Simulated assay, not measured.
Amino acid sequence: MPPFLELFDVAFVQRALVAGTLVAVICAVVGTWVVLRGMAFLGEAMAHGMLPGIAVATLVGAPPLLGAAVSAAAMSTGIGMLQRRGRISADTGIGLLFVASLALGVIIVSASRSFATDATAILFGDILATTTGDILTLAVVAIITLVAACLGHRAFVALTFDPRQAQLLGLRPRAAQVLLVALVTVAVVAAYQSVGSLLVVGMLLGPVVAAGQWTGRIPTTAALAAVIGTVSVALGLLISWHTSTAAGATIAFVAICSGAVSTLAHRLFVRPERNS
């Protein structure tokens, strides 16, 4: 193995790569629908909505992932209640909950004098600390996500392109929307360990935007996004190792850059062929 790739011989880097690959698959499947449905703001709000739960769990000695799940579920429930009542727009409700959750998380963190190192992990992840148990959890989440996406595919398509037709076909668009929000919640919580609460959306959007330049089919987009996300994880770990930068932030940055690189490549190599 070339010297610059020797890091992948290290056990904790191997675990990080496996975990990152599973996160890439989860985020690719869910992120495809996030992009198609224009739910990026929801994903961002959900990611920041985890902060209070993670902070409280860390303070009381509970697993941070459990706190993230509880907090994200509460955020999802709050969004659903606001949308059902219909007194304010969905974006306004999400924005209010987003800011409230973020502010509460910061208050909890700032109230503790022993939160300096924990706060860094919360915000930017700690993928190099991934354990075998974390990998098993991500594997289960990946399987659940794939099964739910397959079972709900027809309803998701109808909901995205013609909600009224979905209702007429008996596809229950409201239930499909609830399931989709639940999948976004699961993806955000799953990716928390890898890239932290601030950078989760990078894994949700970057690879999908990159994949969308080359295919218009939903399953193909999700599959290609999973490959691009996996490459982003490996490249991010490689860059982080040799430049001594934060691994989670580097991975998220590479994932976002994949979208820009893919767009540029598509313009350079595909459009000229069409014009010739």
Rank of each mutant, 00 (worst) to 15 (best):
L268A: 13
T220S: 13
A260R: 03
R271D: 10
V184G: 01
A74C: 15
P272H: 09
A175R: 15
S112E: 10
G248Q: 03
G202L: 06
S276Q: 09
P173F: 02
D91C: 08
C257L: 13
V56Q: 06
I79W: 03
S244G: 02
V109M: 11
A187R: 10
L42P: 02
G248S: 00
I218T: 15
L17I: 12
A19M: 11
G259Q: 04
L198G: 10
A74P: 04
A68R: 07
L204V: 07
A225T: 09
V209N: 03
L66Y: 05
P63Y: 05
A24K: 11
T137L: 15
R84W: 07
R84G: 02
V29W: 05
H242G: 08
R87V: 14
V200T: 13
A57Q: 10
V106A: 09
M1W: 12
V99H: 05
A72V: 14
P64H: 04
A187H: 07
T160Y: 01
A40Q: 14
A103R: 07
Q167I: 01
V99Q: 03
A129M: 14
R174P: 03
T215E: 02
F253L: 15
M203C: 06
L199F: 08
T160D: 01
L168D: 04
V186S: 01
L268F: 12
S244R: 14
T137D: 05
Q193D: 04
E273M: 13
L168W: 01
A139L: 12
L235G: 13
V270Q: 13
F269G: 06
V186P: 00
H153R: 12
G78Y: 13
A57V: 12
G38A: 09
R154M: 01
G133C: 03
A45R: 10
V13K: 08
A116Q: 10
I26L: 06
Q83F: 04
G236S: 08
G93F: 08
Y192L: 13
A210V: 10
L146I: 12
V178S: 12
L235H: 04
V18C: 06
I107T: 12
T250P: 05
A19V: 07
I79N: 01
R164Q: 02
A111C: 06
G105D: 02
V209A: 12
G80E: 08
A103K: 08
L65W: 11
I79R: 06
D126R: 14
V195Y: 05
D134Q: 11
T160F: 00
V184T: 05
I143G: 00
A182N: 01
V35A: 11
V186E: 00
L65V: 15
L151I: 14
G78Q: 06
F8H: 01
L66V: 14
L123T: 00
M46K: 06
G170P: 08
T21N: 03
L36I: 08
L42N: 04
Q177S: 13
L59D: 02
R271T: 15
A139V: 06
A182Y: 00
G170V: 01
A100S: 10
S71M: 11
